[in-house]
Design a protein around this nucleic acid. Structure first.
Lengths: 162, 162
DNA sequence: AAGTCAAGTGTTATACTATAACAATTAAAT
DNA sequence: ATTTAATTGTTATAGTATAACACTTGACTT
């Protein structure tokens, strides 16, 4: 699992994510402009996916241009650089903790508190790759999004969402 | 794989799907009304996912009411009965060939011709279930959507899409 | 330093996807 | 026949995403 939901210094998450972003952009000759950087930070404010228009509102609050293309451009950039993932089943965007190494995003999504844990599972990838191959299918992308109830929400059933 | 892409009597697919729908609705005391039945048939016209508004246009052509709620209600019904699946990464809907037995929809989606093959893979389900459990996560739904290039499109590269 | 070009951003408009809310109709059950 | 619940009609609106073109900025050239 990417992180321990409790006992977790989230500032470190953000800092790490930004550092990775700097490095990656430098390596690839990409520019981490103000709006792109801030968008990344805002997405990293939590381990919950953020909608494009939620992000847009936050950016607008800070004086950035508030038309949709602004945010979608930033999102496209961050997606293409691998710094964030899109959670298809939620139309929302999530910081990636392993942007430095190319990988598929596999997610566990809590239906209650909406927290998302990204997990890596090489075995499953291999099985899927193999399954595709036996059908003569050349695999390109994988969308693996599992929903349910996280341990925390099972424990604190009925309480206010954190 | 659900079907052989060639040498495939698609009328049989549709007929089978409708028969299953009749049976299922009867068993569950649900009503397969005109618009629901026709929506199902139209979705089954191909093994490619159909968008809600594409479906709406087809229904409108046939004299059905052409406001969005009409089609979304039909889709909701068909989804809840398990007669169709939603392909999250495409915002589109696909007939399910195994509506009679509860299951998760796992899909291979061709980026070229957009054909979708549903596959069942008990091993992967078990692995995912297990992975979730080790995180104390109670699994509820699984979205497994793989994209790539199908055998047919690899063979006929550069030709017109069928 | 001025010129050039490409990348990035601003702006307006619009397309696409989905649901809320309430009225009218139909089907089934009494 | 009456009642009731399910379904459908209708209008409006919310939510997600992109097209197209103008303008600005940054980086590279000379």
């Amino acid at each position: 699992m990417v992180f321990d939901q409790h006992d977790h210094n989230h500032n470190a998450c953000i800092k790490q994510a930004l550092a990775t972003a700097e490095t990656l952009c430098l390596e690839q000759g990409q520019r981490l402009t103000k709006v792109r950087r801030r968008a990344l930070e805002l997405i990293w404010e939590s381990h919950r996916p953020l909608g494009a228009y939620q992000l847009l509102a936050k950016l607008a609050d800070e004086g950035f241009n508030s038309a949709p293309p602004t945010v979608y451009r930033a999102l496209d950039f961050l997606l293409s650089t691998g710094l964030i993932h899109k959670v298809e089943s939620m139309n929302a965007y999530l910081g990636c903790a392993h942007a430095d190494k190319p990988h598929k995003g596999y997610f566990l999504i809590c239906d209650d508190c909406h927290i998302v844990m990204e997990f890596d599972y090489q075995d499953i990838h291999a099985s899927l790759e193999n399954k595709a191959m036996t059908q003569g299918f050349a695999l390109r992308s994988e969308t693996i999004e599992l929903t349910g109830v996280c341990q925390d929400c099972q424990t604190h059933e009925g309480e206010t969402k954190e």
